[in-house]
Amino acid sequence: MLGSVFAKSLRDQRQSLGWWSLGLVLLTASIIAFFPSIRDNADIEELMKAYPEGLMALFGASDLENITSAAGFLNVELFGFMVPLLFIVFAVGLGSGAIAGEEGRATMEILLAEPVGRGRVVLEKSGAMIVATVVLGIVLWVAMVVGAVAVDMDIGPVRFAEAVLTVTLLGLTFGGLALAIGCITGNRGLALGVSSTAAVSTFVANALGEIADFIDPAKWVSPFYYYNDANVLANGLNPAHAAVLAAAAAVLVGIGYRAFQRRDLRL
């Protein structure tokens, strides 16, 4: 577990990853357990229709889909807000800690006294961030698949995999942003703050774009638009949207890769 920068970075995450996985499983299980009481309940459907469109948009039920269907229920309760929030917080924590965190604790000085390039350190730590987030995604996928079987949801493992993939990519986009800012500045607090602000503002911009036409063009720069505007659980993966998120994450890591090689270490 200490054979490389990549392996050590993953090792440093194992405890945190364990707790996050537990929390995610508990959340998923408790929400899914609630589904049978909602399913095919016409009263609730009527109730939902009474809510203003804007409010529903903020809760992720963008197209007023039927909350009594499995896909509509999971979008409102999990994939609209809670699950993307958790994946973003998790990945941003890893991304901001990757370079800026190690610099803040001043251990970067001894690591970089070994004959390892800075670019390689960025790539290995990015790799660890990606793997840890994907592992969390796999945990979510297993929980969803098992939960769906338990309450007899009409969504299969492949469709769940597609939804989990998009939320993982969304998390990694913001994780990549945090990593890049950490690489540029060496300041973990700044990386956390900017990434969180970016997540909140692009989320709101995308949600409000549904109801306010003048904001609508802004959704094109919002990762949340590419995350679930196409409603992956109902319609399947939108490869173009997923590619945009993956490319954004890759570009951000690339920016970090270059930036970290060009500056003085913060010591």
């Binding site: 054979g3 604790r105 001043a106 000085e109 006294a113 070994e114």
Partner: peptide, 27 residues
Amino acid sequence: VGYVPGEPALYPNLRGEELLRYLASVR
């Protein structure tokens, strides 16, 4: 080159052997 920093910040959660194994592997 071998380097001893002025204020060596070593990974506090590792044991000495783990630290040396890690840095030796990276090297």
